[in-house]
């Protein structure tokens, strides 16, 4: 599908808002070509100056804090990184120049709204983590949150080359290794199973 068509998918916002609910029932995917383009662009962003192309620095800071609310850095800091450190905001910024371009305005409004909701004269990203959480609870059902949620997870767990999973760190958290060859035992239960069956058959497990 040519990019201009992708910008005019009326149900996209609604779809993304409800994407998570759909996932359980055999939901597979959203729009493809475009995500790929976005991903390629995300990769480029990472590889070059890591500058944001579609969001301002201030907007990107707000988005980064939101990504971290969705997938937070562990405490104590540095133990397991959060979405922002892994590059999710770059993945999303690239998407806003690709298949999510039609949503750039909505995202901008949503980010401005987050800042507006921040108490005092501070920006959202300047709040303490728990204060940010309070603000995000108010916007859980907004298009901004639905899109950020979906794209954050997509960026984090896609191949590192797409830019949202820096050095494969999100995969390492899972214990996932990108290999093409494994040998049994794969896990605890098949290991036990094979050992027990070997015992029953009167020879040592291997």
């Amino acid at each position: 599908m040519p990019p201009e068509e992708l910008f005019h998918l009326p149900s996209r916002r609604e779809f993304l808002r409800h994407a998570a609910a759909l996932m359980g029932g055999g939901w597979l995917a959203s729009h493809a070509t475009a995500i790929m383009a976005a991903a390629a662009e995300a990769q480029e962003s990472q590889a070059t100056a890591a500058a944001f192309k579609h969001l301002s620095e201030a907007e990107a800071a707000t988005l980064g804090a939101l990504c971290d609310q969705i997938f937070p850095p562990d405490l104590p800091p540095g133990k397991l990184p959060g979405a922002s450190e892994l590059g999710a905001p770059y993945f999303i910024d690239a998407a806003l120049g690709g298949f999510m371009a039609g949503e750039l305005g909505t995202i901008r409004e949503g980010l401005a709204d987050l800042d507006k909701r921040a108490p005092g004269s501070r920006h959202f990203h300047e709040l303490e983590f728990d204060q940010q959480t309070e603000v995000v609870r108010q916007v859980e059902n907004t298009p901004l949150f639905g899109m950020a949620h979906f794209l954050t997870l997509l960026g984090l767990f896609a191949m590192p080359s797409y830019g949202g999973n820096k050095d494969g760190a999100a995969w390492k958290m899972l214990g996932y290794e990108p290999r093409h060859h494994w040998q049994p035992p794969f896990g605890y239960y098949d290991d036990q199973y094979v050992k027990e069956h070997a015992k029953e058959n009167g020879h040592a497990g291997s």
Partner: peptide, 22 residues
């Protein structure tokens, strides 16, 4: 796989987010 596993857990019963989801 990692993406679909994460989307399944983060989408089960509504949008889940934060430290518990992670």
């Amino acid at each position: 796989g990692p993406i679909m596993s994460a989307l399944t857990e983060a989408g089960a019963g509504g949008l889940r987010w934060g430290r518990q989801m992670k």
